[in-house]
């Protein structure tokens, strides 16, 4: 990537940014968050969790409730409208100007900034090349596919060298295959440009692939902030655990430093009493009857190519999802035994 594309990495700080819309419940509880310069942060959560509201507060499309502040670097931008914040935005619906060509769309921000024409043309061409859109410069927007449109939208947002790039569900409108390839392209761009980026999605796969850190949100609150690994392996609560990937819940009891699940007793540090355990499907292993901890029968087996996902109904308790090898020959009705590795189990009190 050419040097001229490397953008200033501006940190963003939100201080007590809450949002209450007139006549409805609070959309966002007051939030404190620092986004490091050059970091890609992903807001993840179901619809109505406050993630888009947070993005729009950073953008300047919504103002936080009184007392909240938004800082870009050292500058307090709380009172600035979006057109004076120098942000780049990419929307789920692309939001390209239908009355302009691809090149005119990309040039729009430079034209508004009154850049001289030759400089404008040079930067537009550079950006179109970077996004592999050179051959489409003269096309109308309705002559492009969804993936191409979103690349134009990215080019248009980036060509003005914004202080932060804001992406609101940019891949949601695309089909699965395009989504994957564009996600890789966005990843390459964000790393290459070194720009501070805020990405909103409800798709945990996108969040894990793109985010340096993920902010999981629910009902206007932050449920957890962490790296994808932290979120996946150390979910802060049951909501995060359920929202990210697939999580099994196992009931057990602790007595005298031993955890009892199924027929097994495992060494365990923790207070006595009933516990609920969270286990990922890939952390439950098939075992022989002798060293298995839990017995059950296969209720369903789904072949996914690289793995086979089993739904196992234990003798008591809710059904468990277990990932095993793709070549597994197990099918409905087979008796299986499962092993639990205490090191890979999380207890929620």
């Amino acid at each position: 990537m050419p040097d001229s594309f490397h953008l200033d990495a501006v940190p963003i700080r939100l201080e007590r940014c809450g949002k209450t819309f007139a006549g409805s419940a609070r959309a966002l509880e007051p939030l404190d968050l620092t986004i490091r310069g050059g970091e890609t942060i992903v807001f993840l959560g179901p619809s109505g969790c406050g993630k888009t509201t947070t993005l729009r507060i950073i953008a300047g499309l919504e103002s936080p409730d009184p007392g909240g502040r938004v800082l870009f670097g050292e500058e307090d931008v709380t009172a600035l409208p979006i057109e004076r914040r120098n942000v780049g935005m990419v929307f789920q619906s692309y939001a390209l100007f239908p009355n302009m060509t691809v090149a005119e769309n990309v040039a729009y921000g430079l034209k508004v900034r009154k850049l001289p024409r030759p400089e404008r043309a040079r930067r537009v061409e550079e950006m179109l090349d970077l996004m592999h859109l050179g051959e489409f410069a003269g096309r109308r927007i309705d002559q492009l596919s969804g993936g191409q449109r979103q690349r134009v939208a990215l080019a248009r947002a980036l060509v003005v060298r914004p202080r932060v790039l804001l992406l609101d569900e940019p891949l949601t409108a695309l089909d699965a295959k395009l989504r994957d390839s564009l996600r890789l392209e966005i990843d390459r761009l964000l790393r290459g440009l070194g720009i501070t980026a805020v990405y909103v999605t409800h798709d945990q796969g996108e969040a894990m692939a793109l985010g340096d850190r993920i902010v999981v949100m629910a009902k206007g609150r932050v449920a957890q902030i962490g790296t994808p690994r932290e979120i996946y392996y150390q979910p802060a609560d049951g909501f995060v655990a359920d929202f990210i990937g697939t999580m099994n819940r196992l009931g057990g009891t602790v007595r005298g430093g031993m955890l009892n699940i199924g027929t097994a007793s495992l060494p365990w540090s923790g207070a006595d009493g009933a516990v609920e355990l969270l286990v990922r499907p890939e952390d439950l292993a098939l075992a022989s009857e002798d060293d298995g901890h839990l017995g059950g029968s296969v209720a369903a087996a789904v072949f996914l190519g690289d793995r086979t996902r089993l739904v196992v109904e234990p003798t008591d308790g809710p059904a468990l999802t277990v990932d095993t090898l793709g070549r597994s020959e197990l099918g409905r009705g087979d008796r299986v035994w499962l092993r639990v590795d205490p090191a890979r189990v999380l207890a929620v009190p």
Binding site: A59, L61, P81, I82, E83, R84, N86, V87, G88, M89, F91, S93, A95, L96, F97, Y108, G109, V112, R113, A153, R156, A157, V160, L166
Partner: peptide, 15 residues
């Protein structure tokens, strides 16, 4: 009218 179009224009600096 798509309100996102206006927001996109404003994000690019349009008054």
């Amino acid at each position: 009218l798509d309100p996102r179009l206006e927001e996109a224009a404003r994000s690019l600096g349009a008054s």
